[in-house]
Computed example of a mutant assay.
Amino acid sequence: MTESTVRVSVIDLFSGAGGLSLGLRQAGMSIAAGIDVEEACRYPYEANIEAPFLAADVRDITGEMLTRTWAPGHVRLLAGCAPCQPFSAYRRGADTSGEASWPLLDEFGRLVRESRPELVTMENVPRIGSSDVFSRFVSALRTLGYCVAFGVCHGPAYGLPQQRRRLVLSASLLGEVSTPSPPNPRAEAVSVRHAIAGLPSLAAGESDPNDRLHKARVLSATNLQRIQASSPGGTWEEWPEELRAPCHRKSTGASFRNVYARMTWDDPSPTITTMAFNFGTGRFGHPEQDRAISLREAAILQGFPREYAFVEPGKPVHFSTVGRMIGNAVPPPIAKAAGQHLLHHVRKATEAA
């Protein structure tokens, strides 16, 4: 039996705009549904993944609902990326223990217990690996009889043009399982240049008439001067004194070298966040043009194909809404590798049976 004959049906919890589903579909899996609380994700999910989208809070979903949704006769995979904001390195040590996102991984565990799919995969930021909620999740899976493996995947090793690290967990009732290996560990990292250099040039505030998502945010007069004074890979320290912000003049300002900064052409990008369209929130300045990266460039650096549709035709493109969908997405290349790895695992388990 080959991977192409293995039939796996996927339900994607916390699906967002479909990054995880896209990667798993590219791997050869069948997507049964995506579930997310954000109604704005319905159009990109259904338009690109061509699978049903359910706008619902995961706390209102039951195992019985999932069981009715998976395709009959398939190996069932419950996949998802619970919101990771409480564990993000960008939170700089803030106390996040009271946030509503914390219990959502427990809800993921509840749905595994109620529906008992053959396979589970979960992706999140690496810091979640040292949290109590993650330990509970792993313990619950093992108590239910799942073999569990998890590890950190570095984006460039999987063809992602971004310095993103993600924890990927695989669990199976079919036997011992491992984490996905890079498809070509000796491959050269995909650079920002390779990913986005071919897109039309824009000025700050402009949009590409042929691609509404290739849209750059307006810069204030001061920020335009700042980016003009910035070199690729440089910091605010190269600016004239009059352009420096008050925080830069404080002794603590030295720790903020990766904001108000340009990317470099020949390296992968920094981690794409929900605010990657904003010059002031990271190293999100275009390497050459005097603007922040566009929404389309952020999506490409996150691993989405250039034609991926995020906004329904005729509807306005809002930076905050689309930026959140892009920044919160699972990078499809990492999801594809995880899907291929699980398909291989299922084939081996089937042959051994």
Rank of each mutant, 00 (worst) to 15 (best):
residue 171 A to Q: 11
residue 186 R to D: 14
residue 340 Q to L: 08
residue 344 H to W: 04
residue 312 E to Y: 01
residue 232 P to H: 04
residue 60 D to H: 07
residue 18 G to T: 08
residue 346 V to W: 06
residue 342 L to H: 05
residue 134 F to K: 13
residue 299 A to M: 12
residue 168 V to P: 02
residue 269 S to M: 07
residue 309 A to Q: 15
residue 195 A to S: 13
residue 265 W to E: 08
residue 74 H to I: 03
residue 228 Q to A: 15
residue 150 F to I: 00
residue 211 D to S: 05
residue 256 F to A: 14
residue 264 T to N: 02
residue 329 A to V: 06
residue 329 A to L: 11
residue 144 L to I: 05
residue 14 F to G: 05
residue 68 R to F: 06
residue 145 G to Y: 07
residue 92 R to W: 05
residue 287 P to L: 10
residue 225 Q to A: 15
residue 224 L to Y: 04
residue 48 N to A: 05
residue 201 S to L: 14
residue 134 F to Q: 13
residue 79 A to V: 12
residue 342 L to P: 08
residue 168 V to I: 15
residue 270 P to A: 06
residue 296 R to C: 01
residue 8 V to F: 08
residue 196 I to F: 03
residue 204 A to M: 11
residue 104 L to H: 09
residue 197 A to K: 07
residue 325 M to P: 05
residue 24 L to Y: 12
residue 12 D to L: 00
residue 313 P to M: 13
residue 59 R to K: 12
residue 165 R to E: 13
residue 11 I to C: 12
residue 347 R to Q: 14
residue 34 G to I: 11
residue 301 L to N: 02
residue 145 G to T: 13
residue 100 A to L: 06
residue 233 G to D: 09
residue 298 A to Y: 04
residue 241 E to P: 06
residue 186 R to L: 09
residue 244 R to P: 03
residue 66 L to Q: 02
residue 226 R to T: 10
residue 343 L to K: 06
residue 29 M to W: 09
residue 279 F to G: 02
residue 191 S to F: 00
residue 170 S to I: 03
residue 45 Y to A: 10
residue 185 P to G: 06
residue 284 F to N: 06
residue 85 Q to A: 11
residue 136 R to C: 04
residue 244 R to K: 15
residue 203 A to W: 07
residue 109 G to S: 14
residue 6 V to S: 03
residue 97 S to G: 04
residue 235 T to M: 07
residue 51 A to D: 12
residue 215 K to D: 02
residue 11 I to N: 01
residue 227 I to Y: 09
residue 338 A to M: 14
residue 334 I to D: 00
residue 352 A to C: 02
residue 331 P to K: 11
residue 319 F to D: 04
residue 91 R to N: 10
residue 58 V to P: 08
residue 88 S to H: 06
residue 6 V to G: 00
residue 265 W to F: 09
residue 131 S to M: 09
residue 237 E to H: 08
residue 249 R to I: 02
residue 305 P to M: 10
residue 297 E to L: 08
residue 162 Q to I: 06
residue 276 A to N: 02
residue 318 H to W: 12
residue 59 R to W: 07
residue 279 F to S: 04
residue 71 A to Q: 11
residue 47 A to G: 03
residue 82 A to D: 06
